[in-house]
Amino acid sequence: MNAKHKTVFVAFSSQKGGVGKSTFTTLVASTMHYRLGYNVAVFDADFPQHSLMKMKDRDLKMVMDNEALKKLAYKQFTTINKKAYSIMQHKADSVLDAAREFINASSVPVDVIFFDLPGTVNTPGILKALAGMHHIFTPITADRVVMESTLVFSQLLQNIIMKQGETSIESINLFWNQVDGRESTPLYNVYDNLIDELGLSLMRSRIKNSTRFRKESEVNSKTIFRSTLIPPDERLMKACQLDLFINEFLKIIKL
């Protein structure tokens, strides 16, 4: 491994469940690894559900059972000439050490490691794991409970962990998810102003609401959105503005 090559540690993290942490980890990791040419890996430390480990098993079975997806996967892997990215299960309290061991043992430079972390700060080792990230991305929705939980969580990271000095965190980035075009724009403006007043960073990209975020590939489907083996279909990405999000994401992490 090239000792000068910096591997970026990224977490989609929130204290509120169901806002899309694991989904965005999968979508961005798959886009970067399979379509954009980066080498990524994922550590699933979200005990006890370990949803990404389970998703990979389901994805593999789905591809093997679906002829269209099997052909798509075969064409993809022969074209990019590399394997699927690794998803490894680990506990939060030692996941940073495990990631560094993985980087040192890797035969190719690893550009980004994504961490799927538990959604509660009471989990042993979670604050240490968060402090070891370079960039944290937190999805938010226009829901009072989600916003209150997220703002408290983000302020904890920014005002306590980052100011203590013993941290790798370079940025904490909130972004709007599940944006419904029918919702009141002034509502978002109020929240935008509140986030700005608290000194938190808000991404310009807004992810439009789509049922695709809650669906995995189906038996007869010919297109992919959320998968650990194949990147999301480009038309589906544009429909929910995920393409714009990933462009901004790459600028933030400087890749």
Rank of each mutant, 00 (worst) to 15 (best):
A41C: 00
A45F: 09
M133R: 02
E166F: 13
Q49W: 01
I246Y: 10
S13P: 10
S210Q: 05
G37H: 15
S171W: 05
S51D: 11
V28M: 09
I252H: 06
D143H: 11
L151C: 01
P139M: 07
K6E: 10
R58W: 01
V42F: 04
V19I: 04
H135E: 04
Y74E: 12
T167K: 04
T223L: 12
F245V: 03
D57F: 03
A92H: 09
D192I: 06
A98S: 12
V19D: 03
F175S: 13
I161P: 07
P139Y: 01
A45N: 00
F225Q: 10
I230L: 15
P186F: 11
L174C: 12
S13V: 03
I246E: 05
R58L: 12
H90R: 04
L60C: 11
S51F: 03
K91H: 14
D97S: 09
F43G: 00
T138I: 07
E183H: 09
H135K: 13
I195W: 15
A98F: 05
Q15N: 10
N193P: 00
S217M: 15
M32E: 07
D196F: 03
K16G: 07
G20S: 03
V28Y: 04
L117H: 03
D116G: 08
F245K: 04
R100M: 01
K70H: 09
I140Q: 13
D111S: 06
F9Q: 10
V8C: 07
S107T: 09
L157Q: 05
K128I: 07
A129P: 02
Q155R: 14
Y188C: 08
L187N: 14
R204G: 10
L244E: 13
K16R: 14
T185M: 08
K222P: 05
T120I: 04
S210C: 02
S14Y: 09
F225K: 01
